[in-house]
Amino acid sequence: MTAKLVQLTVNGREEHIAADGLISLQQVLREKLDYNTVKDGCTQGGCGACSVLVDGELALACLLPVSRLEGAEITTLEGLNESNSAGVIQESFVEHSAAQCGFCTSGMIISAKALLDENPTPSRDDIMEAISGNLCRCTGYLPIIEAVQSAAGKLAKGGDGE
């Protein structure tokens, strides 16, 4: 199998990845680059635990072959933590007890971030739509919806953390 060299930017750092075959972005991020916030709940595109931002857009890392990502800019939750650009969302998740086991949570935060970047004043329906690809077996979603709503409210009031 011939490995193709792919250049990516992950959380602001340039990476050169030998992309053999169909190796996924999830495998590269988790196993080669040690970005542990990228979880694996299914490897089938069905749970959202591996959500990341690719060029600012929400994407499921388990479905993306790295070979197709030449030049892409990837942001994982580690990146958002470093820039504190999800601080308000994370604070709201804590205030609303929006996680129990926490396994879905990094994906949820990424989805919420993608939503609020795109639409700072989402309706409840917009929020439900935005997280509909992120499964949570623990919380029953209500605290997550409330957390995202409250984060939107804070950001609209010119909340800090951005």
């Binding site: 979880k39 939750l77 969302i89 994370q90 804590v94 007890s97 929006a98 996680a99």
Partner: peptide, 10 residues
């Protein structure tokens, strides 16, 4: 662990 959950650090 909520603080570490939301940062993905658990």
């Amino acid at each position: 662990e909520l603080e570490s959950h939301v940062k993905g650090q658990t």
